[in-house]
Design a protein around this nucleic acid. Structure first.
Lengths: 144, 144
DNA sequence: ATGAGTGCAAACCATTTGCACACGT
DNA sequence: ACGTGTGCAAATGGTTTGCACTCAT
């Protein structure tokens, strides 16, 4: 008997739902939440359920086709861009934007150096105010 | 009339609950969840509710007395250590450990350089396997 | 044909909130 | 006294799951 630590990966089927979820995530471009993506996909598959969207996002992430981004502020977000990059999130409006990874140096390297964990990955989240919310806040202060 | 953008901060009272929550977080040392802390505090205040723990942790964080750590893997965690440092989390058992910040360079600096957001803060989370889970996994593979 | 995938509704679980009362200032 | 803080229970909201059915392979 084959007693492997990791059970054999299931053979995945490319259902219409799965394909369209992936297409729409790529088309959406940003970092939609499952719910936002659900709205979008519904325009093409009106009967698709939110649960199916979640299930497929998990499968796609496991397959390495997409990346799930767990930022503060509640919901998970999903990203079809696979290149290493980080995220800034506006604490006011929740807007998320990519930032390039290079200026931060080799974080994985540094991580491996400072701890005895077997480093598998890492996530850098930057919190701040987007230009428009920053401007709005300054306006408020002036008139206050 | 005083029309400030930010309403006057409330005068906070140092209730027994608030003081003991802070004491227990400091005594606990690690990165307990609200629930774990609730268990601890209950030994001294048997009737305290989880809601009160949450409320006070929010207040204490806002006052800068503690830091809330939002890592992947469900619950928020809380930290009484205020010095800048990052966190490694074992993806297997959920254990969280501190890592020093120096080897990573000035992430805030880099963040400000690469985006037009007004950077307020950032959080680096490293995912990996703690030594014992890594060992366990290797053992499994060998015998599998 | 067969088991992965689906829609639906209900379950889950961390966190939050409404309310009437209690207590720190 | 005043209004912040508390306990309790119920609500919330993102995510997951059980089930019977459907469909890709």
């Amino acid at each position: 008997m084959a007693r492997t630590g990791h059970p054999a990966p299931k053979r995945r089927r490319m259902t219409r739902q799965r394909r369209i979820i992936l297409e729409e995530l790529r088309a959406a471009g940003g970092h939609p939440t499952a719910d936002e993506l659900h709205q979008r996909v519904r325009q093409r598959l009106p009967r698709i359920s939110l649960a199916t969207v979640y299930r497929n996002l998990d499968v796609l992430a496991e397959a390495g086709e997409i990346v799930t981004v767990r930022l503060a502020g509640g919901q998970r977000r999903f990203d079809a861009v696979l290149d290493r990059h980080y995220h800034v999130r506006c604490v006011e409006c929740g807007k998320v934007r990519d930032v390039p990874a290079e200026p931060f140096g080799d974080i994985g390297e540094a991580a491996r150096r400072v701890c005895d964990f077997e480093v598998l990955g890492y996530e850098l989240q930057i919190d701040g105010l987007c230009p428009s919310c920053a401007a709005a806040r300054r306006g408020e202060q002036k008139q206050g």
